[in-house]
Design a binder for these strands. Structure first.
Lengths: 342, 342
DNA sequence: GTGAAAGCGCTAACAG
DNA sequence: CTGTTAGCGCTTTCAC
C-alpha cells in the first residue's frame, strides 16, 4: 500500500507537506497542493487509519453493544446506526453481551482499547459499581433501551410504563380482570417499567392483581413458553396475557397453539415491542409499538455529534423518550365465559 | 492509559523486555517475568491494539459484509460469527452493501484500510472486474451465501438448486402444474440457482413452464407483494407459488391475505430460507430450510483458521455446500378446481 | 509555505 | 537473558 512517503517522493515535497495538503489545512500553495493531490492519485494513496488512530488516540470506529444480536429489534437499530455511521465515514463494531453485565464491561474495555470514537450501549447491569465502571471511560457513550440510574450519559428509549399501561387498559376495556403478565429480565429497567405500568393501571382501575399471575419470562422465548404453559394449564387460568416483549409473545403464542387454545377466543394476548412482519403472524397482535427508526436515528445522531465535537463532555446528558403507539390487531376479545367466572 | 513504558519503569527493566515477557516468548527469566507481570497488573497495563496493528499490519478485527443487516438470516449468522470471533479474541465490524456490488468493493477497501484480519463477504457482484478487484486483496476472505465464479476463496452456502427442486417437486406431487416462481435478485447466484432448480424440476416432470409466471421479486418484501398481487389477480392465476426466499414469501402471504384468499385452500405457497419463528406464522410454511448454524460455524471456523495460519494462501480454497432440509408445513394443498381448469 | 524532527505504543533485530 | 535501536505511517510543532 502506498504511504505518505511515496506521495511525497513523487510530488517532490516532504511528507509533512503532503499531510498538511491532504488534510486541507489551507497552509499549502495551490499549485503544490495540486501536485500532491495528483501524486496521491497516481500512487493510489489512501491514508492508513491505524496510523492515524495511534497518533490521535481515536479511531473512526464506533462500537455497539446489545444483549442479543439476533433480536430483530436490534437488527433494525444496528442497520440504521450503520447507515448513519458509514455516511459519516465511520465503521461499526457490534458485540453481544448476552444480557450479562460483566460482558458489557468486558466489551467496553475491548472497545476502549481499540480507541473507538464512541459506543452505543444497551446496558444490562445496574448498581454503583457498574455505573462507576461505565462512567470511567472517557469516550462518548450513548445508552439505549435500558435506562440505568446514575449514569451521566445520553439516553434514548421508549416510555415503557406508558406502553404496558396502554395495553393493560386495552385489556381492561375488553372486560378482562384476570390478567397475567409475563415479565422481562429481573432488575432490568425496561422490564421493571413495563411491570410498573401493568400494576399501576390495574390499581387505577381498582382491579386486584393476582401476584401468581405475574411471572418471569426473562425476555426469553423458551422460558416464556414454559411460563405460558404453566399459566394456561391452571384451573384458574387468566383470560388475558400481557407479554413483556415480542419474543415473549411468540413463546406464548406457541404455547396457546400447542394447547389447542384459540387466541383471542380462549385467551387474549398483547405485547410490547414490534414483531417483525407482525402482519403475517396469526392472529395479528395488538401491541405497543416502539418507533425503532426514531430510536436509532436519535442515538446515531447524538453519538456522532459528540464524536465530532471537540468538547464532548461539555454537552449535557440528554434524554429522548419515544412514545409507543398502540397497534390494534386481532389478538384481543372479551373474556371467555368459563374463565371469567373463576 | 498505562503504556509498556510505565510497566518497564516500575519493573525496572527495558520496554523490550516487557514486550518479550508479556508476549510469552519464553525468553525471559522466571523472576523478571513475575516482576513484570506484577508491575503490569499494578499499573493496569493493557496492550494498545492500535499500536500493535500499526506494527504488524494486522488488527484483531474481522469484517462482515452482508446485503441486508436486518434480514434475520444474516442476523443469526452475524450472531454466530461474533460469538466465535470473540472467543478467539477478535471483534467484528459489520457493514451493509444493500445488494450493491460497488458498495461491496468500497467497504472491502475500508476494511482493508483498517487492516482487518479477514472478512466474511456475502458478495453481490460478478464479472471479471468485480472478481479481480476482490481477488486483489491479500487478506483472507471467506465468501458466504452467494457464489461468484472465478474467485479463489473459501465458499460456504446452500445447495440452492436442490432447495427449489425439493419444493417444486413437492408442489408437483400435490398435483400442481401451474406454478409461479417469484425469483430473487437478477444475476445473483442464489437467485439463479433457485430458478434453475425450479425449471429443471418442471422439465424433469414434463411440465411446461409459463414464463409469465416467473417474475422478479428481488428478495424484496414490497416488490414481492406487488408481484404476488399481479399474479393472483390474473384470471389464469397460478395454483401455487414458489417464493425465492423468506422475505419474498412474507410479501406473498400478505398479498394472499389482502386479497381475501386462503392459503393453502386457494393457493399453495412454499419458500426457500428459514423464516424467524416460522411456527407462529399462519399457515406454517412448507419450506426448504438452510442450516444457518452450520453455515455460520464453518464460515467463522475457516476464516479464523486462515487468520491464524502463517501461510493463509497455502490453504487451497474450500467449498462447503449445506443440504437444505424440507420442512413440511400447512401451506400446500391440492390445487383448487377453478384455477386448475384454466 | 515548506521541511526537519519528535513521537503515538509497540515489536523485533541485533548487540552485548 | 536483557537493553538499544529502528521503525510501522501519520500529525504537528517549530524552525527556516
Amino acid at each position: 500500500m502506498a504511504t505518505i512517503r511515496d506521495v511525497a517522493k513523487l510530488a517532490g515535497v516532504s511528507i509533512s507537506t503532503v499531510s498538511l495538503a491532504l488534510n486541507e489545512t489551507g497552509k499549502v500553495n495551490e499549485d503544490t497542493y495540486q501536485r500532491i493531490w495528483q501524486a496521491a492519485r497516481d500512487v493510489g494513496y489512501v491514508a492508513n487509519p491505524v496510523a492515524q488512530s495511534l497518533k490521535s488516540g481515536r479511531s473512526r470506529l464506533i462500537g455497539m453493544i446489545v444483549g442479543d444480536i439476533s433480536n430483530p429489534f436490534f437488527g433494525k437499530i444496528l442497520q440504521e446506526v450503520e447507515r448513519y455511521a458509514i455516511e459519516k465515514n465511520h465503521l461499526v463494531i457490534v458485540s453481544e453481551s448476552r444480557a450479562d453485565p460483566e460482558r458489557d464491561l468486558a466489551i467496553l474495555e475491548q472497545l476502549s482499547g481499540q480507541r473507538v470514537a464512541g459506543v452505543i450501549l444497551s446496558p444490562h447491569g445496574r448498581g454503583r459499581e457498574y455505573v462507576e465502571r461505565i462512567s470511567s471511560y472517557r469516550m462518548p457513550i450513548v445508552m439505549l433501551d435500558h435506562k440505568v440510574e446514575g449514569i451521566d450519559a445520553d439516553f434514548i428509549g421508549s416510555d415503557n410504563v406508558l406502553a404496558s399501561a396502554m395495553l393493560t387498559e386495552h385489556l381492561i376495556r375488553w372486560g378482562h380482570t384476570r390478567i397475567a403478565h409475563i415479565a422481562g429480565i429481573t432488575g432490568l429497567w425496561t422490564a421493571e417499567q413495563r411491570m410498573k405500568g401493568f400494576y399501576d393501571t390495574m390499581a387505577a382501575s381498582g382491579l386486584p392483581v393476582d401476584d401468581s399471575l405475574v411471572v418471569r419470562g426473562e425476555y426469553d422465548g423458551d422460558l416464556s413458553y414454559t411460563q405460558a404453559m404453566r399459566l394456561l394449564t391452571r384451573p384458574d387460568r387468566p383470560t388475558a396475557i400481557l407479554a413483556a416483549n415480542n419474543i415473549t409473545a411468540l413463546g406464548v403464542l406457541q404455547a396457546i397453539n400447542d394447547l389447542g387454545l384459540k387466541c383471542p377466543a380462549d385467551i387474549s394476548l398483547t405485547c410490547i415491542d414490534d414483531v417483525p412482519w407482525s402482519n403475517v403472524i396469526s392472529p395479528r397482535l395488538t401491541m405497543a409499538v416502539q418507533s425503532i427508526d426514531e430510536i436509532a436515528r436519535v442515538a446515531s445522531k447524538w453519538l456522532l455529534e459528540r464524536i465530532s465535537s471537540r468538547t464532548p463532555e461539555a454537552i449535557a446528558a440528554r434524554e429522548h423518550i419515544v412514545d409507543p403507539r398502540l397497534l390494534i390487531g386481532q389478538s384481543c376479545a372479551a373474556p371467555a365465559q368459563f374463565s371469567t367466572k373463576v
